[in-house]
């Protein structure tokens, strides 16, 4: 544990934090642009070329908005809600392997902040806490709409977390490890998990939409019925934190999908290029970000294609369709693993 090591971890952690924030910032612009394109409009294009400064303008606007707090709100919890949401959204990025490793002067530096051997479990733990930010915010607002939104968020997240974990269990059964870097390394080259777990991927994708409160599962914040749901009473940068956290969650979810099912930083023919280890790592990280961008696009694509679910439909899909399918997937995976070990 020398100073060099601490410096390297500090730089890596700061870089990932900054990249997460930057990506979240620009995915707001990307989303608005795409929304425009999907609806035959142009999207924001006035602030700088292609609206490059639009996120800055939006952020500035949020900062200068009136900071309003309802008189009957619980002051401490009201502020805690968005802060907690934001903090939890940023926590997950620590265990995601953003790239292989870089070798400088014979010392290997991994591009993963914390390679803990229960990475998958950690991600689920953090995701489960994520609902508290919304619950606390909705409760502290002392508003019926906010409370309904918060209750919806809680039940939705619990329902879909179950199916999500079940979908992941098949991955864990296959790879025999909970460490994310190990799962990625096993998908070396083109041996991506998507080829072995297509059903699991579909389940995970649907649950990821639900966990991010994204359309078509955006019931906690549906504008038409609940006037914004849990953030009805929020304004200024506190509202900004809630909205921003949603985009960070999207980024992290895309990274998780790419890590678990699409080989993370692995890409086809990576051994045949004959490049040095460091160059392969660099290309791998770029490939990883391309994969993440693609899934970010899918998130937005889905939002502007599918209408919102009704609440009972949401619950029925989660409990009666996704959960049994995930269980069937586990059984099939177990059966195949047994056959493989037997022969």
């Amino acid at each position: 544990m020398d100073g060099n090591y601490i410096l390297y971890k500090f730089i890596l952690a700061s870089a990932i934090l900054l990249i997460s924030l930057l990506v979240a910032m620009y995915s707001t612009l990307f989303e608005r642009k795409l929304a425009g394109f999907f609806q035959d409009r142009l999207g924001p294009n006035r602030a700088g070329i292609f609206g490059i400064f639009q996120p800055l303008a939006d952020g500035l606007k949020l900062f200068f908005k009136e900071e309003f707090m309802p008189g009957s709100a619980d002051k401490f919890l009201y502020i805690l809600g968005p802060s907690l949401t934001m903090m939890i959204a940023l926590l997950t990025s620590a265990v995601i392997p953003w790239g292989n490793s870089i070798i400088i002067n014979g010392v290997e530096y991994s591009l993963q902040v914390a390679d803990i051997n229960v990475g998958v479990l950690y991600v689920f733990a953090i995701l489960s806490i994520g609902v508290y930010g919304i619950m606390i915010g909705g409760w502290a607002s002392n508003n019926k709409y906010a409370l309904i939104g918060a209750v919806r968020a809680a039940s939705q997240m619990i329902s879909y977390e179950l199916a999500m974990s079940m979908a992941i269990i098949s991955i864990v059964m296959m790879s025999g490890t909970l460490s994310l870097s190990e799962i990625v390394n096993q998908q070396h080259g083109f041996h991506w998990n998507i080829w072995y777990q297509p059903l699991g991927f579909l389940l995970f994708l649907v649950c990821a939409f639900a966990e991010c409160n994204r359309s078509p599962f955006d019931l906690p914040e549906c504008e038409t019925e609940l006037i914004g749901g849990y953030h009805t009473e929020y304004s200024s940068m506190k509202l900004g934190f809630y909205l921003f956290a949603e985009y960070i969650n999207m980024f992290i979810s895309s990274a998780m999908i790419a890590t678990l099912y699409f080989g993370g930083y692995n890409f086809p023919f990576m051994d045949d290029l004959g490049l040095s280890h460091n160059a392969i790592t660099m290309i791998g990280t770029i490939v990883f970000f391309i994969k993440i961008s693609f899934f970010g696009f899918v998130f937005m694509w889905v939002r502007w294609t599918l209408p919102r679910f009704r609440y009972d439909q949401l619950m029925r899909l989660g409990w009666k369709t996704l959960l049994p399918l995930a269980l069937v997937n586990i059984v099939i995976t177990g059966f195949v693993i047994m056959l493989k070990n037997h022969s």
Partner: peptide
């Protein structure tokens, strides 16, 4: 619709 002519 991404590639359609924009009405704007």
């Amino acid at each position: 619709h991404l590639f359609k002519k924009k009405a704007t």
